[in-house]
Amino acid sequence: MAASSLDQLETTRHAWRKFKSRAMSGVLFAASALAITPLFLVLYFLIKEGASSVDWNLFTQLPKPTGESGGGMANAIVGSLTLLAMATAVGVPIGVLGGVYLAEYGSDRVNYWVRFAADVLNGIPSIVWGMVAYILLVVPFKSFSAYAGGVALGMMMIPLVMRTTEEMLLLVPQGYREAALALGIARWKVITRIVLRTALKGIVTGVLVALARIAGETAPLLFTALGNNFWNHNLAEPISAVPLQIFAYAISPYEDWHRQAWAGALVLLGMIFLLNLFVRLISRDRKFS
């Protein structure tokens, strides 16, 4: 009888544990569903409103004059690619070199404050970056320009690239460094030819993530690039970008521009999606061995 009672008690406890496990799994599933629901709503509305407006003209034509229907965002698409290239030229070298310093050279005390500053900068609203670039590059030269927009976006990339580079370098086994140094190889050669090459895929992943983050920024460009409706032939003059064009069209009173704003938003989302997909592909099966 005692053994039977113990077995019954253990069965009851087992059933209760299974119930709690299933209940918590259900709660976690519901929380996950709630978390991703806004994403699917955004995708649904973008596809619903913008898919029918995406055509060849959107990629090949310039915006029409105010009040006229038709046209496209060719200048804005090229402008966005130009600004991203300039931001990469500014943010990647500084960010990577900063990450190398943190991982290979800096002292604990200095590194602590540099990391703290980078983490704070990562959380600064993008409009603040735009205001800083406006004060440093627009006001002194008395002109909005592609240079100012590229620098503003590049400054936003620096802390993220720096922290990503540091983390990727720290993942490289210490034995690689010790073996190379034991052979008499200079430290800078060990870093550039062994450590950086080993961590290259992870660093590129961090750069692409930073590009995906800044690709949709509008506020910094309002203070720096300003935007225009024509091709940009001089980087010292205002330049258009897809986020700026979407903003201008979205606040306009014209229905056709609203339609193009939805189409531009869908194109921008597609660009960011492709960047993130590329990040997933190159970061898959990343190993240090």
Results as ranks from 00 to 15, higher is better:
4 S>M: 04
9 L>A: 12
10 E>I: 12
13 R>P: 00
16 W>C: 12
16 W>G: 12
17 R>A: 10
17 R>W: 11
21 S>V: 13
22 R>A: 10
24 M>F: 13
26 G>L: 00
29 F>Y: 08
33 A>L: 14
34 L>G: 04
35 A>T: 13
35 A>K: 06
36 I>T: 12
37 T>A: 14
41 L>D: 09
42 V>M: 15
45 F>A: 06
45 F>T: 14
45 F>D: 08
49 E>N: 13
49 E>A: 12
50 G>I: 14
58 L>F: 02
59 F>Y: 12
61 Q>H: 01
62 L>S: 00
62 L>E: 00
65 P>M: 08
70 G>V: 06
73 M>P: 00
75 N>H: 03
84 L>Y: 08
84 L>M: 15
86 M>C: 02
92 V>Y: 06
96 V>Y: 07
99 G>F: 02
102 L>D: 09
102 L>R: 08
103 A>K: 09
105 Y>W: 10
106 G>T: 14
118 A>E: 04
118 A>F: 10
121 L>Q: 02
121 L>A: 05
129 W>G: 03
129 W>D: 03
135 I>N: 05
136 L>T: 09
143 S>A: 08
144 F>G: 00
148 A>T: 01
158 I>S: 03
160 L>K: 11
160 L>D: 09
167 E>I: 01
173 P>T: 09
175 G>P: 09
178 E>K: 13
181 L>R: 09
184 G>T: 11
185 I>D: 11
187 R>F: 14
203 I>T: 07
206 G>W: 05
210 A>E: 10
218 T>N: 11
221 L>G: 04
222 L>K: 14
231 W>A: 01
233 H>W: 15
240 S>V: 01
240 S>T: 04
241 A>S: 15
241 A>N: 06
243 P>A: 02
244 L>H: 05
249 Y>G: 01
249 Y>Q: 06
251 I>F: 03
260 Q>Y: 03
262 W>H: 00
262 W>M: 00
264 G>P: 05
267 V>I: 13
272 I>M: 08
276 N>R: 10
280 R>S: 07
283 S>E: 10
288 F>M: 15
